[in-house]
């Protein structure tokens, strides 16, 4: 398998006033194409920070991040926004659906940035809503859906553009066991059936079991554990 994500010697320092808060130190990580990787680690270890860097919503202080051949740290804001819309599907812990839009409209939203025809958009949206099992809930608003259902809409929104990489920051963190299981099965399916590369942060060892490989982050550094490697 070829390497899809290359994180090279990345450091991230936050500044609060003049105080430096080093979060990641010289971190390197490779994610092969088609991988389903779980990232674990204690709170504050820098998991979210690492995901934000990989998904291009934050920039490293030093080092490079190359995804499918593009060094995303070198892109300007507009290029980066476009790059995200084409390459990243983001699943958040708290779903983050737009409350005034229906499930259908939420899933359709990322397609507004594409040149797809109306018909193609409709096919895609209905297709992914079918995959996540919500064809009968298309016209429901987020508040009319359960947490698990909302997260499934969010997954549909994340995959509708057919992105290179799916990023999940504790996608099951706010769900009960049963709903979490459904979400994990869905992600597993995306990985196996649709060959999607997934990097997912989780606190739940059971969730991590679904992944092929689990990496541990501790105080901004990756542990050498070779789990699954």
């Amino acid at each position: 398998m070829s390497t899809l994500v290359q994180v090279n010697q990345v450091s991230k320092i936050y500044y609060r006033g003049t105080i430096e808060i080093p979060v990641l130190q010289n971190l390197s990580l490779d994610v092969p194409e088609g991988e389903f990787m779980a990232l674990m680690g204690p709170s504050g270890s820098g998991k979210t920070t690492l995901l934000n860097l990989i998904s291009g919503i934050d920039r490293p202080t030093s080092g490079s991040i190359v995804i499918a051949g593009t060094d995303i740290a070198k892109l300007n804001e507009t290029q980066l926004a476009k790059w995200r819309s084409q390459n990243i599907g983001f699943i958040f812990q708290f779903y983050n659906l737009i409350p005034v839009l229906t499930a259908y409209e939420n899933v359709e939203l990322p397609l507004e940035l594409t040149n797809l025809s109306k018909k193609e958009k409709k096919q895609r949206v209905e297709g992914v809503l079918n995959i996540v099992g919500l064809s009968d809930r298309m016209d429901h608003y987020p508040k009319q859906l359960s947490g698990g259902q909302q997260q499934r809409v969010a997954i549909a929104r994340a995959v509708v553009t057919d992105p290179t990489l799916i990023i999940g920051d504790e996608p099951t963190g706010d769900l009960d066991r049963k709903s979490a299981e459904e979400i994990l099965n869905l992600m597993d399916r995306l990985n196996r059936e649709f060959k999607k590369t997934i990097v997912m942060v989780t606190h739940d060892p059971h969730a991590a079991e679904k992944a092929h490989v689990t990496r541990h982050l501790e105080k901004g550094e990756l542990m050498v554990n070779g789990d699954g490697k």
Partner: peptide, 13 residues
Amino acid sequence: IREYAVLKTLGFT
């Protein structure tokens, strides 16, 4: 603010 951040994550400017 959170929604606008989500829109930006999706690639809106």
